[in-house]
Design a protein around this nucleic acid. Sequence first.
DNA 1: AGCACGATCTGA
DNA 2: CAGATCGTGCTA
Length: 188
Amino acid sequence: MSILERDFYARPTITVARELLGKKLVRQTGGAELSGVIIETEAYCGSEDSACHAHRGKTPRNAVMFGKPGVAYVYFTYGMHYMLNLVTEEEGNPCAVLVRALLPLSGRSEMQARRKKHGKELANGPAKLCQALAIDKSLNGWDLTLGQRLWVENHLRAAARDIISAPRIGIDYACEKDRQARWRFLIH
DNA sequence: AGCACGATCTGA
DNA sequence: CAGATCGTGCTA
């Protein structure tokens, strides 16, 4: 196994969002190791992107995005859900990749147990993914290069022809050009 | 201090 | 399609 280092994240957000497809996300908690292959991501590209939380400047919530790449940005929304993002680009450029879906590898039953509703799908959707992997605000700002609690490993590399791009989900408030940007990436 | 709304999910 | 459910940021 090889853990992704900071230089992997310190690159253009769209590149990182595409290359994260096929990588292995690992969560270590309470003795259990939960992991899965990343199969869906979205790029949020800094202050110029009206869909990005950092669009209106730095606030206590989004401060982590303005810091080092390779750090988790976890936030709470809809009064009940957590979202996992991985900070990208150089420090001070507030960009991140939202991790939207996983194909579970290890810890399937633990993930199932953590999900309040026991549907067949465990980690297809950013909120379900966080629920399955026990990701909450305590991981906001966590350094993914430490190889503890939460990290990403090399696994597979998705071929370009197997990647579908599409408009991002749930950003109706963004301006026309950013709503149309095909910055959601899925493995075919 | 008050308020509108959200990078969602579920079940009817 | 409405409801759950509350932190956040904007307005005043």
